[in-house]
Nucleic acid binder design. Structure first.
Length: 380
DNA sequence: TGTGCCGGGAT
DNA sequence: ATCCCGGCACA
């Protein structure tokens, strides 16, 4: 897990990682204002029609930030885009990422995607829906009914695919019909000729969109202006999440939204609050790690444990001594049949402050240890 | 015997 | 609430 120093030749790619720069990026590529407007309209529409609930789902987010992942700061990104408590829903993260993770390392749009479009004509009953993540769980109730939504229909013979976003449709055209020569300048704008704008009622649009949602682990966000490397879209999320704690991002940490901090708080944060775990929330100092293990990484672990662990252990090196999941589950299993009525806690195996720091460094102990209370730093 | 920590006292 | 310690249970 090397720090993703942006290799020079990929500079352009890595630059488009965040919404901000995206906006900057777009106008640069689109010279005429009209198209720009369409673009903006599409984006506005999509964002409007997307409730926070929709945005937060990791699946969407995961894919969404695909290109940004390159920049190696997905955690923060997630905070940016939707700071709704995604950390508690970590299960989702793992789940969806688990599905999308095993991305074939092909630099093309996912093979199945292509295969579908070409191989099975039946997919084009005129309404194959936008495989963009928004519809993943677009909560219909949130929609403003009767509002008209602009959709984009592919005009390619026998295709008729309808997408919500202009970007999506362009991408579709490019990827499927023009061949994935996305970067070549000659096709740069050609895709514009292969789609048309369609106005449809929000409701029907949704109806069209939703059905495809459940089964398909889709891989692409509508408003992604970057078409360059579809494969990126399948980057495993947990991985990126794990990266957050890595020192390699330390430079980016300062602008972190506080929300993200409190939830994910990469190492840099908790040792600021050196010690009062005992009375204060343990989540700020070292004890945080166990919580992270259980609530986040743990959930993600089954699917992506191995890639995670190295990073994790590095960032959480303080709590290294304890083997997270094993210890936890063990605890759960054994605790119910707790020893004879005594409320006394079975002595933990984990090292405690005393052992770790020694009596001579008592000042480094956690407060609990200093007060002869149950250690809060090295929980069992 | 050293250690972890409960229970409770002092401030 | 914070700090401290006697004393017990455990390894």
């Amino acid at each position: 897990m090397m720090p993703q120093v942006p290799p020079p030749e990929h500079g352009a790619q890595a630059m488009a990682y965040r919404p901000v720069s995206r906006n900057i990026d777009v106008p640069k590529r689109k010279s005429d204002a009209v198209e720009m407007d369409e673009m903006m309209a599409a984006m506005v529409l999509t964002s409007l029609s997307c409730s926070p609930v929709v945005q937060s789902p990791p699946g969407a987010e995961a894919n969404f930030s695909a290109s940004r992942v390159v920049s190696g700061d997905p955690w923060k990104e997630s905070g940016d885009v939707s700071d709704s408590g995604s950390s508690t829903t970590s299960g989702h993260w793992s789940g969806s990422s688990g599905i999308s993770t095993p991305s074939p390392p092909h630099p093309q749009a996912s093979p199945k995607y292509l295969g579908d479009a070409f191989g099975s004509p039946q997919t084009d009953h005129g309404f194959e829906t936008d495989p963009d993540p928004f519809l993943l769980d677009e909560p219909a109730p949130r929609k403003r009914k009767n509002s008209v939504k602009v959709m984009y229909k592919c005009l390619w013979p026998n295709c008729g695919k309808v997408l919500r976003s202009i970007v999506g449709i362009k991408r579709h055209v490019k990827a499927l019909h023009l061949g994935d020569t996305v970067d070549s300048d000659q096709f740069k704008r050609e895709e514009d000729f292969y789609y048309t704008e369609v106005q449809m009622k929000e409701e029907s649009a949704v109806a069209a969109a939703v059905p495809s949602a459940p089964g398909t682990p889709t891989v692409e966000p509508a408003p992604t202006p970057r078409v360059t490397s579809p494969s990126l879209a399948t980057l495993p999320l947990p991985l990126s999440k794990a990266q957050t704690s890595g020192p390699e991002h330390s430079g980016l940490e300062s602008p972190l939204p506080s929300g993200a901090l409190s939830k994910s708080a990469p190492g840099s944060f908790w040792h600021i609050q050196a010690d009062h775990a005992y009375q204060a929330l343990p989540s700020f100092q070292i004890p945080v790690s166990p919580h992270i293990y259980t609530s986040i990484s743990w959930a993600a672990a089954p699917a992506a444990a191995s890639p995670l662990s190295p990073v994790r252990s590095r960032s959480l090196s303080f709590s290294e001594p304890q083997p997270p999941p094993a210890a936890k589950s063990h605890l759960i299993v054994t605790s119910p049949p707790r020893a004879q009525g005594s409320a006394r806690k079975a002595r933990g195996e984990a090292k405690k402050c005393r052992k770790v720091y020694g009596i001579e460094h008592r000042d480094q102990w956690c407060t609990a240890c200093r007060w002869k209370k149950a250690c809060q730093r090295f929980l069992d």
